[in-house]
Design a protein around this nucleic acid. Structure first.
Lengths: 119, 119
DNA sequence: TCAATATTTAAATAATACTTGAAATATGGA
DNA sequence: TCCATATTTCAAGTATTATTTAAATATTGA
């Protein structure tokens, strides 16, 4: 993962509304939630919610699919796992201080550098 | 962890310069690095670096200690672990899809809610 | 005390992000 | 076709955040 990609994802999560949206989707699991349901749970107005969904999707953290007249959003667990791995990567100079984080909800597909990758 | 705390930490990490600084400190381990050394590694100008350190410190992600004429910054691993736990918390509605992430570089001290905590 | 090194602060400018409300688009069913 | 529901887009105003330069503070050692 490139640092710009990771920073974009973290920046997307660095806002209370988007973080609440993302957590709702993480808790919903891969099946996802309709946009309206997320708005209901978080109390965010539709147009604002749409704006934040777009930000999260642009960062690769959520995906959208149309289902009838609903749009279902789901967390992208692989991207999230890649991000967590990037943050803890090469922790303490590579001397294993503790077991590395295990991925959540499926394996990691994003390639992960070892600290001196392309940046 | 409260959502505002988590969002502030993620926002602090959501900037390429600060992310580079934080990763350098994560890789340095608990012993930390002098501010100047971080500037050397990341190529960030001193005053800009100081600004970004302050942001990271304000979010609780790094600590500073004076050592002679150097200021040594270190990643706050416990806060980082609390943040990672918060992001993956109650994943998939609590149905364990995979083992939850293990903390890195020491245990988690921050209290962690189970999804319906104070927000 | 003086000079050098290390880091922070302040002030100014530039750029970006967020919210709101109204209008637009698309789907499903009577 | 017509209406109700679901979601997005657009435009305007407000607020927040980033970067730079110069000056200030603090520590060390001669």
């Amino acid at each position: 993962m490139e640092i710009k990609t990771a920073a974009a994802a973290l920046s997307a999560l660095g806002h209370a509304s988007r973080l609440a949206v993302f957590r709702a989707l993480v808790q919903a699991g891969p099946a996802g939630l309709a946009a309206g349901k997320v708005g209901e749970v978080t109390g965010i107005a539709p147009s604002s919610l749409s704006f934040h969904f777009k930000e999260l999707a642009h960062a690769g953290l959520v995906s959208a699919r149309q289902e009838g007249r609903y749009v279902i959003y789901a967390a992208q667990f692989e991207v999230m796992n890649g991000l967590l791995a990037y943050l803890t990567e090469n922790c303490c100079g590579g001397n294993p201080c503790l077991p590395m984080s295990d991925p959540v909800c499926g394996g990691v597909s994003s390639p992960v550098t070892t600290g001196s990758g392309p940046e």
